[in-house]
Structures are given as structure tokens and as C-alpha cells.
């Protein structure tokens, strides 16, 4: 069977796109290869590491386990969509720096997108709750204490 393609309409970080994509294209490949948004990483490609975490329609999801065709009409937010228009950092990005929440940085975009979901879901009330809610994001450098602290800082600041 020869490759099949489909038209996918999708809004990424506020910008609408309409592209012709192979039906096999995953969301993470569409972001990285077709749109050049390489902030979203691919670790395992199997749903176990969380490096590919983005938001679709307001919730955190794994872009490696989503086919682009199934996200038709969706609103996608990636790490590139955070921060202020003049290039300033989002408060959770700043908190990651302040708390030394990274070493190599490979897992960081996924950690931050997942951390935002954790805070938004109201699951950042205690360190234990944050660890449980963030268990889908692995860090080979084991920056976990800093990650938990950064998320707790932002959640507290927001009165969560």
C-alpha cells in the first residue's frame, strides 16, 4: 500500500496551520519536522518518558502517542508558546532556572509543559502530590528535587 496523506488543520501556539501530512505522522514529528518547533523532544517514543509533553485543547498529553490526523482542529501549546511576546521567560521557566531544576536540559521542555498541567489541575499542593502527578516525566540527570521545588514555587505564588 502506498503512503496516504490527509489535510490537517491545527493551531499551534496561536498560529493556525493547514498542512498536508502523511497519515502516519505523529504530532511530535509534525511539530519538529514540518513546523521546525524542536523544543518538544523525543525520548522513548513509547509513552514512558514524557519528553514529548505538549498541551492539546488545554490538557497535557504525549505528542509521541498522538497521530496528527487525530488532532484535527486542535489547539496545541508547546514550550515555544510560553513566555512573553518580547522573549521574556514564563514564570515556570524562570523557576526552573532559580531552582536548578535541570542539568542536560533534554527533559526540561516536557517537564515544564507537564508541570503547567500539574499546577492547572490543582495537583501541586504538596511535594508528594507533585511527585505523583509528575511521575510520567523522567529525568536521566535526576534533577527531581529542583523540578518539584520549581513547580511548588509557582503553584504557591498563584495561591494554589
Amino acid at each position: 500500500m502506498k503512503p496516504e496523506s490527509a489535510v490537517v488543520s491545527i493551531t499551534v501556539n496561536g498560529t493556525p496551520h493547514r498542512l498536508e501530512a502523511d497519515t502516519r505522522r505523529t504530532l511530535v514529528d509534525l511539530l519538529r519536522e514540518d513546523l521546525g518547533l524542536t523544543g518538544t523532544k523525543i525520548g522513548c517514543g513509547q509513552g514512558t518518558c514524557g519528553a514529548c509533553t505538549v498541551h492539546v485543547d488545554g490538557v497535557r498529553v504525549l505528542a509521541c502517542l498522538l497521530l496528527a490526523v487525530t488532532v484535527e482542529g486542535g489547539q496545541v501549546l508547546t514550550i515555544e508558546g510560553l513566555g512573553t511576546p518580547d522573549g521574556g521567560l514564563h514564570e515556570l521557566q524562570q523557576a526552573f532556572i532559580d531552582r536548578d531544576a535541570l542539568q542536560c536540559g533534554f527533559c526540561t521542555p516536557g517537564q515544564i509543559m507537564s508541570g503547567l498541567g500539574c499546577i492547572g489541575e490543582g495537583r501541586a499542593n504538596t511535594a508528594e502530590e507533585i511527585r505523583e502527578s509528575m511521575s510520567g516525566n523522567l529525568c536521566r540527570c535526576a534533577a527531581y528535587p529542583g523540578i518539584v521545588a520549581a513547580i511548588a514555587d509557582v503553584a504557591e505564588g498563584q495561591g494554589a
Binding site: G47, G50, T53, V56, V59, R60, V61, L62, L65, L66, S114, G117, C118, E121, R123, S133, M134, S135, G136, N137
Partner: peptide, 9 residues
């Protein structure tokens, strides 16, 4: 079961 990201979809 699974992780928060997986349970969301």
C-alpha cells in the same frame, strides 16, 4: 494507572 498525560487522552 499510567501517567497524567496518558489519562488525559
Amino acid at each position: 494507572a499510567a501517567s497524567a498525560q496518558i489519562r488525559n487522552v
